[in-house]
Amino acid sequence: MVSTAVPRVAARRGVVRRVRWEFWLLLPATLYIFLLIGFPLVLSIYYSLSHISVGRRDYSFAGLANFRAILADEIFRQALRNTVLITIVVLIAVLVLSTILATALAERFPGKPIIRYLLLLPWASPVVMSTIAWKWIFDSQYSVINWIARKLHLIGPYEFPQWLGIPSLAIISIIIVQVWRILPFATVITLAGTSAVPRELIEAALVDGAGFFTRLFRITLPLVRPILGVAILFTALFTFTDMAVVWILTRGGPYNTSHVLSSWAFQVGIVAGDLAQGAAIALFMLPVLAIVAVWVLRLSHREVTE
């Protein structure tokens, strides 16, 4: 009895000592992240299943009542449709445009560093400030777009298209601003991918008489696919979860037709004070986040095994 107890204590001490110093250094950040990301995430799932509102701390279990209520609401369904539509259109536009821009930027030309720097400014600018500038560009009376369209006789002299006041135009405006702001980001990623394509491969293809599009679709794009995946991933994530652009441009208007999940969650959860339903609305972002997370894990796993 006595003889076995001593080594066991020693072994336990050894375990304590074997908690490596790295873990102690990781502890504060881990705790903080758990407290401010992990805990609220669990809490928001709990909220969505409860009756809680700003005025009433009623944590009693509501089952799926909140989800049934929001799914029955046409504004929510519209917001969900908008979010998906905006994300898909922005994704396609950003991919096509960033491929064009990255191809152009891969060429050699004078003044390239400064031109590249200027092209990337939209992503670097604070999103709130540049969206405000766009709100003024889309102004109902003094829109510069309308002024140009009038001069080009695309619209009549007394026509004032309400960019942010007509449902379809409001959605188009949101898409324009999102593409404008995310394009530089996707271009930098695509550029990093294309410049990693071995020069010899391109030259070999040139010798074999491959045309521009053959080179693009047969060599460059397949080789940059993993890095293009990163661009797709983050473009989708940034568009799908953003609220600032929509809230500043339209506040979900006109008549709540241009809401996205985040802005509608804010409207219901904070402005109207129904925390439970607001949380349920926001949780509809979770499937997309899960897909993105799995994607990241698969990419990182593949890199490890290679």
Binding site: L26, A29, I33, L36, I37, G38, F39, P40, L41, L43, S44, Y47, I52, L237, T241, D242, M243, L261, S262, A265, F266, G269, I270, L275, G278, A279, A282, L283, M285, L286, L289, V292, A293, V296, L297, S300
Partner: peptide, 24 residues
């Protein structure tokens, strides 16, 4: 794995957390 776990938390957007955080 720890590194990737830390990175994954970056993917959780504030638009998902602001309601419970407002109560906290």
């Amino acid at each position: 794995n720890l590194g990737i776990a830390v990175f994954l938390t970056y993917l959780i957007p504030p638009t998902l957390l602001f309601l419970p955080l407002s109560q906290i």
